[in-house]
Design a protein around this nucleic acid. Structure first.
Lengths: 249, 249
DNA sequence: TATTCCGATAGTGAC
DNA sequence: GTCACTATCGGAATGAG
């Protein structure tokens, strides 16, 4: 059972009393906080605020939420997704500011969270961070292992038949536990890595090659733009020449 | 298989070229060396020197020695025991010098040594040492677990029937491996200890209570001796008095 | 699957 | 079962009010 209460206590606080180092922004229905131990360059959590008809225990995790009422659950998760989409926009703006390009952003829940209070992870698809220390950290965010439940997947469950939904929501701890112990494989290229230091080195290499690729794209674009500008300029110069010629006529 | 060769190379060297920090003493047939990682206050190794009819590989371990010839093996091990008994005498002298009393000394072979070249461990029965770090270290010297083969036990095997001898000598690696993973239990009082730091603390306590007990014994002895001396003195004084009296007569 | 601390466990490499 | 180094694995405590 989830029992650690740091997120729950954040969710219960008056947002105005939460320091900016913790809270990114908030609405009537949700809080966006900086993950205290970011596992990617960008990593936030979106927490539902506690308000009727939900009690704080209804919001412990996906299972407790689904036990409440399916339609209310759908509405709440859709609300989180709206906040996440807005956050995604902000992150992309910051990506361009800092790096000159955007890259993928993942949104999802952990299949077996440790901390009480539903939290939607929103993080950039690089998994490059000092705080990424253990195999279980990495595997919990691997986009294809099944521990990280992409929000679209969860929304699909909510719209599926009750039987299918129940079977997916009730995947047990043991099943999730096994995923966390799977061998380390790169989420970019599926290469197997022998241990965390090796994996982290490899992820850094992959990330640097993404950057190089994007920078090359930018250069090409700039080059094309320049060519285009030259053409435009040349053409307008010709026009000017023609105009001046015609003016001389 | 034993394959590390530090001891083998020592056994093959001219003893006169081995530094005093390594070699304690030697004879025609054996070397006594300080264990480089002593697991007790006193800890030595006795190595057979390589001489006919043995080759260096005959002397790899008990099993290779026994494959050679049973009577030659007995002779060789008896030779090691003679060196060990002499060493024991030296250690006891040093115990008295340093601590004022003697305590038990163990002599034996490891059932599954890692290093090539037969080596008889001779060590004081305290197992108090900084170098005692791991469970396998401790269990390899526990006097009742069966990994530490007391020399008297081995000599008894040599005098037993060939079938019994073979069964004892051929106890396999897996069996010995299990012994090294047994729970930690104090060799003094059989108490189970949860981990190495706890065990080491307990062994230190046991060792300190041994010291206290022995010191108390010494005090009592000294006291008795003093009483005795007083009696002797008193008596001799009386004699002197009597003598002087008689002299005065 | 919150982190952190501690210790046990496992693999390697040494020459 | 040589050591030393690195990394993984495994349990326990943790905070807040």
């Amino acid at each position: 059972m989830s029992s650690l209460t740091a997120l729950r206590s954040i969710a219960l606080r008056d947002p105005l009393t939460i320091p900016n180092s913790v809270l990114y922004n908030h609405s009537q229905t949700s809080l966006v906080v900086f993950d205290a131990y970011p596992k990617s360059i960008f990593h936030f959590l979106i927490l539902p605020r506690v308000h009727e008809p939900f009690t704080v225990t209804d919001l412990t995790d996906l299972r407790s939420l689904l036990r409440k009422d399916i339609d209310l659950a759908k509405e709440l998760i859709h609300g989180l997704k709206i906040a996440a989409d807005s956050l995604k926009h902000d992150i992309e703006e910051e990506m361009v500011k800092r790096y000159g390009f955007k890259w993928e952003i993942w949104m999802g829940f952990h299949g077996a969270p440790s901390m009480a209070h539903l939290h939607l992870h929103v993080l950039s698809a690089d998994l490059c961070s000092e705080k990424m220390k253990h195999k279980k950290h990495y595997n919990s965010f691997h986009p294809k292992h099944g521990f990280f439940l992409h929000i679209e997947t969860v929304l699909a469950w909510l719209d599926a038949t009750p039987t299918y939904r129940a079977s997916m929501i009730n995947i047990n701890q043991a099943t999730y536990g096994k995923i966390l112990k799977e061998p380390l494989s790169c989420f970019h290229c599926s290469k197997q890595l022998k241990d965390m230091p090796t994996l982290k080195g490899h992820l850094q290499d992959e990330w640097e090659s993404v950057m190089k690729r994007e920078r090359t794209k930018l250069e090409r674009k700039k080059h094309i733009t320049t060519k285009h500008e030259q053409l435009v300029n040349a053409s307008s110069t010709r026009h000017e020449e023609e105009e001046s010629k015609s003016g001389q006529q």
